[in-house]
Each structure stands twice: as C-alpha cells, then as structure tokens.
Design a protein around this nucleic acid. Structure first.
Lengths: 185, 185
DNA sequence: ACCTGAACACCGTTCAAGT
DNA sequence: ACCTGAACACCGTTCAAGT
C-alpha cells in the first residue's frame, strides 16, 4: 500500500478525533497506517509540521461561505466559523492554537479578520491590534470550552466556561471598543 | 542531601529559565538535583502538578502591591503584573497558561480580576464573561510575544506581535466595552 | 519514490528494597 | 521520610538497505 501526504494527514485527523492529541504519536499513526514509523518521514519532515497540516485540514473542513456584508457582522461570522471548526474535532482547539502560536499553519483566520477590520475603515495599527485581540479571545475561549467539555464527558463536573452565548458576549465587548474607534476616525 | 518539595519546585524554575520547557523533564531535573528520577515522586505526585507548582511560583515571585483605586485602573495594574511575571522566565507564559487551562494552579489572577470587575458594579454574568475575556487577551498576547521574542533571539527575525504598547491598546478595547456596560447599569 | 529494519537517545512512572 | 536500582512501556528521528 502506497500513501501520499494527504493520506497521512487525513489519517492523523482521524486518530486525533478518536483517541485525542496525546495518542497522536508518529508511532501510533504509523501502525494505524500499517507502516513503519520511519515511513512517515517520506511524507512529512517532522511531527510539528504534521500537526500544522492537521490544523489546516481541520480549519478547511469547517470553512463556510461568507454571507455578512457589514464588517462587524463579518467578524462575528468568521469567529463563529472558527470556533465551530475547532470544536468539531477532539482537541481541535489545542492543535489549531498551537500551530498558530508557532507560526506554522492556521493563518487563514487571521487574514480574514484583518481584511474585515480593514474594510471597516480602522487605522492600520488598530487593524493589527484588533485582529490579534479577537483571535486571542476566540482561541482562549474555545480551548477552555473544549477542555471543560472533554473533562465533563470524562467524569468530573468542573466549572463550565459558557458556550456560544458567553462566546458572543465576550466578542461583543471587543467589537464595541472597535466600533467606537471607527466612528472616531 | 535531603530535599523538600520547595527545593524541587525552585530548582524546576531554574531549569526552566535556563534551558526552556522542553528541557524541563523529570529525569533532567533529578540529575540536576543529583538524585534518581524516582526520588522526585516523593515530593510531587506527577509532572503535571510539578508544572502547576512552577506556574504558581512564577506568579508569586512577580506579585506586586496593589496601588490603583478605580476598578478599571486596577484591571490594568493586574494585567501588567501578570504579563511581567510571565515574561520574567523563559517559557513562563506557556507554563502559566497551560496550568490555567487544565485548572491546576494559576488561579490568583482570575480571582483578582473578578473582584476588580465586581467592585466596578458590573452584573454577575458580565463579571464572569469579562474576567475570562481579559484573561484570554493577556494570556494570548503574552504567549505570542514571548514566543516571538525567543524565536528572534534564537535567530529568525519573525513578525513582531507588539510589546507593552500593543498589549495595553488591546486591553483598552475590552475595557471600553466593559465601561459602557457599567454606565448602562 | 516509498518503504523496512534496526538503531540512537531519550521520555514518565512504578515498585521493591534499602537507611 | 527519603532515596536507590531496576524495570516497564513508551517517545521522535535517522539511516543504510531494499523494491
């Protein structure tokens, strides 16, 4: 059986979703494909870049058409899509956030937010600050939400970090600040 | 030589700061203390809780007296202290954020923010949402800032995520949203 | 081009035994 | 109470050799 890079990435997503990030090892993935661990290094330079590819695959699978016209509605749309995409796979938020932190993959959401804020007429430095702030909010909220969900389904009834409603409420706090800067410009 | 838990935690902080998180292994820490790896398990139940203790130690070492009176100035003060504390040690942000995510240690900053927002007269649900939003902003920004700093000092001149100025600007966006809700109450 | 087999240099954790 | 010695069950990655 001969594989391509896309087969490896797709199987990695499946292993992640079924067994979790801590079980997504090169050796485990190799045995899942019926291949020696060393064979994976023909398709991927190392584990880090495999995880980046997994992050991009998760985001791409969750992508939806853009419908909103107003810049602030578009921000909400992008953030909702991003949250849903990450929540759709076990440990999806952790994987996407880590990839973004190390600057490998997961670049699309930042670009989409940037252009929405730019369309809103914000000055360039505020586009930068705003994009990062929104992204940090979405990432932080979603990692916490997913961790709590998975902890709850594994037994312990921890604190709940709020779902979609709290997510949107936090986002609106930030959007208020940004809107105030648009009208002031 | 006989050690106590505090010796182990303090040495762990030193190893973290000097060699980074990826080198902070139980085996490495043991050899640094001149002891067998198994000896560490007399002072700490596992690696995860050692890292939580390291996170708390980092935060405690960076703690400063509270001076601000107004609730919103106090939020800025708390966030600045938190950022400085994490930046003071190599990979400090990563360690503190991970501990917080898994609900082990790093609880003090959330409590301090909660009480500041409550003093501001915000309704209870907004205290929750606001605390988490602020924390996510600070954590996200600081991890990104520290990662970029360390990547830069290791060679690659990456994108810079802004320092203290961008940090405060992002925080002010959120505070504007919160202040608007205070006056509306 | 893709894979095997074998190795290298590591991990976290447990547990009987010592003092 | 604190530590040793030895083991268990793993890791990511490299590299010569095969087809």
């Amino acid at each position: 059986m001969r594989y391509h890079r896309s087969d490896v990435v797709e199987r990695a997503v499946a292993v992640l979703d079924e067994y979790g990030l801590e079980s997504l090892t090169m050796r485990r993935l190799a045995s899942e494909l019926g291949v020696q661990p060393s064979a994976l290094y023909h398709h991927v330079p190392n584990k880090q870049s495999l995880l980046a590819a997994v992050a991009d695959e998760i985001l791409q699978r969750g992508s939806r058409p853009r419908r909103a016209e107003r810049w602030d509605r578009r921000v909400i749309e992008i953030c909702g899509e991003l949250r849903d995409a990450m929540l759709a796979y076990r440990d999806g938020a952790e994987v996407v956030v880590t990839a973004h932190t190390f600057g490998l993959g997961a670049r699309e959401p930042a670009a989409a937010l940037r252009s929405a804020l730019a369309d809103g007429g914000l000055p360039e430095d505020l586009v930068d600050v705003g994009t990062r702030a929104i992204l940090h909010l979405v990432f932080g909220h979603t990692v916490e939400e997913q961790t709590a969900m998975q902890a709850a389904s594994a037994g312990a009834i921890d604190r709940n970090p709020g779902g979609a409603a709290d997510f949107e409420q936090g986002l609106h706090l930030l959007l208020d600040g940004l809107r105030a800067r648009v009208s002031a410009a």
